[in-house]
């Protein structure tokens, strides 16, 4: 019983961490109509950078996130006019063209990471990585708690930003009715660029979070991507709190499945669930 409860708690924490990795993708898909398959590869790159900062300069990953997220935001601002706008403009199906573009980008990043850091798996070890933390009577891993808090803060912060600030409202306006937004004077193109840059900025937070929990190699982004896509599809693209709820569900399946069933069953359950949801509610559960 105690073990079951503990895996439940770890599952929820894992869900929060995954929510952080997924929410930016959901934002870009729902609000800028960009299908960014490089989202977790960008996150993984940040994981490696945080690892580098930790091992060479002793900088804590929590501090590294504070440096990397703004840097990635700027990278997003640079990527939009150079790579994305030309790929989206005049294309009948931007989801297809951007997914091919970003798949290519992910593979380039994977090879670059492999070149710089070798294909050997890495583990980020901080003083709190393996420290047992007792929360409400459950004992969980320290790095899991940190990653979960980062993810949760990110999701709640984005939710607040989108619903409580004027720019957030303008972002929703462009997503819901682009022509209507232009007619009230919103520069839809600039807003899309901002959303995309925000999304890339969040990739840093989610990616460093996951890199704190799992050992990672240059190809890990693909495993992360599968789970993150599942979360976004179930939550509904652009639904921020939906992403959180869906990620918590996935975390529970992973946490409980890990305790009760052989590892191989996890994916079977998760993707079985995905197929069912795609059949019944293809636009997501919370949209």
């Amino acid at each position: 019983m105690g073990m079951l409860v503990t895996s439940l708690a770890s599952g929820l924490l894992l869900g929060c961490a995954y929510a952080g990795a997924a929410v930016g993708l959901s934002l870009a898909m729902g609000m800028a109509r960009v299908f960014n398959l490089a989202h977790t590869a960008l996150g993984l790159t940040c994981g490696y950078l945080a690892y580098f900062l930790l091992t060479t300069a002793g900088i804590d990953p929590m501090v590294a996130v504070g440096l990397l997220a703004p840097l990635m935001f700027l990278a997003g601002l640079a990527l939009w006019p150079t790579l994305f706008r030309p790929t989206v403009r005049g294309v009948a199906d931007p989801a297809l063209s951007t997914s091919i573009l970003t798949l290519g980008l992910a593979i380039v990043l994977e090879n670059a990471l492999s070149k710089v850091w070798t294909p050997n798996p890495r583990i980020m070890s901080t003083p709190y990585s393996n420290q047992a933390i007792t929360l409400f009577g459950f004992t969980v891993q320290g790095s899991l708690v940190v990653a979960a808090v980062l993810g949760l803060l990110l999701v709640l912060g984005l939710h607040w930003f989108l619903n409580r600030t004027f720019i957030g409202l303008a972002i929703q306006a462009v997503a819901q009715e682009p022509d209507g937004a232009r007619l009230v004077g919103i520069r839809a193109e600039l807003v899309s660029m901002l959303v995309f840059a925000l999304s890339v900025g969040t990739a840093a937070i989610g990616g460093v979070g996951l890199a704190m929990i799992y050992s990672f190699g240059p190809a890990s982004y693909f495993d992360w991507l599968l789970t993150v896509l599942l979360i976004v599809v179930v939550g509904g693209a652009g639904a921020i709190l939906g992403t959180l709820i869906s990620a918590l569900g996935v975390g529970l399946v992973l946490g409980l499945g890990g305790a009760l069933l052989p590892q191989a069953w996890n994916s079977l359950i998760l993707f079985g669930l995905l197929l069912t949801i795609l059949l019944l509610r293809p636009y997501g559960l919370f949209k």
Partner: peptide, 23 residues
Amino acid sequence: PAERICELGLVHVPEGRKLFPRL
């Protein structure tokens, strides 16, 4: 572009309204 024209004070309420339905 429409957003610059709006700035001048020429405002268009379009056919089909184009409201933001989930706000």
